[in-house]
Write a protein that binds this DNA or RNA. Sequence first.
DNA 1: ATGTTC
Length: 476
Amino acid sequence: MDPGRFTQVDATTWRVDPWGAMRVPAIIYADENLIRDMDNKVYDQAVNVATLPGIVQACYAMPDAHWGYGFPIGGVAAFDPDRGGVVSAGGVGFDISCGVRTMLTGLAVADVLSVQKSLADSLYHQIPAGLGSRGAITLDALEMDAMLIGGARWAVERGWGEARDLERIEEEGCMAGAQPDWVSERAKERQRREMGTLGSGNHYFEIQAVAAIYDLAVADVFGLVQDEVVVTIHCGSRGLGHQIGTEYLREMLVAAKEAGIELPDRELACAPINSEVGRRYLGAMRAAINCALANREILGHFARRIFAHFFPNCDLRLLFDVSHNTCKVEPHIVDGRRRELFVHRKGATRAFGPGHESLPAALRMVGQPVLIGGSMGTGSYVLVGEATSEAKAFSSACHGAGRALSRHAALKQWSGRQTVDDLEKEGILIRSPSMRGVAEEAPGAYKDIGAVVAAAEHAGLARRVARLRPLICLKG
DNA sequence: ATGTTC
């Protein structure tokens, strides 16, 4: 879009001053090239979100922002319940608590390269991936509720994970306030056989090499070492989260109307936080957060099982596990006053800076690991939260490269088989049940992740620590 | 993202 539509504040800050029904400004953090490549829809959607009741400070878009359902993907918006603030299913996203975890292996790249192909095949055969994939775990009604309340803690109690993981997971692996009773039977039924599965779309299970270190001191605290191998898992709450999103979106259309909220776009359906539907959604959404945390913990357990087969002395340690599709109650300073806000992050990663009380002791001094998933070919980044992000975007950062081309456009431009062959020549092994999915996820369909994280760093959202290069990628 | 259309 045309940068001229904004008031440029600095090289990576672009503001839309309130006009029309906007209650607060809209602010996009990106460099000029990213703004030029960004769809006009991001502007429209950020402006629309800024009209919602109870929104505080500003509506933000991250450098990887693109068009989404109602809210932009890469959007951050915080609402004050005491000022009529709302909660919106479209502001969280359909894949509730979709997120990323990175595990340290301590292995050298050479160790993995010596078994690269058989390791790739093993992942493909042992990790259920793809649309409608089902796992070895089936939950009855009692276990479903226990999982929705316990999250990763539940997984650890059942032997699918390790207790030491929990302090390295957002909410220590267990989101409080989950209400399984407010999750429909249909949502639970869809999830009954989907625990420990990857899903499809942009979800992946990757074995990566630490390709570059930007901040040696923080990398040392994180345990990231040049040319060592890590495992990164990107997935969410599968069918359960999607079903909850679908059902509450419909309810919120009615709730918004009843509350007299003017919606500039039906897709912004929302309910007052202090309303029956709002409270029910929050309880169900928190249950879905636990589902995603449990799912990633189980997949981490599978990673350990597979690595133990190839490398008997290998010990996989969790660096961190963080979601990028949530609504969280957090204290933030607004207008010099501490307020409890409902922070929607949709395709935006929580990025707490140094000293934050929720971080484990081993990380508190440096800040939260901010895990940024890239595309299959171009790799990923680990950033660290910055104190400045609190005032810039309620302690949030980008979540990935962000799509540059639609799935449809990508399908027209690339073939899945050719993409796999091209990446194999670069030493990257792709395994996927869907060649169509691989084509949709071709590296060229994504923005330049290097430019995205550089812009995030310049804007003071988070700082680069390391770049990760894929060696093996299991795609859903 | 998604039993890719309740």
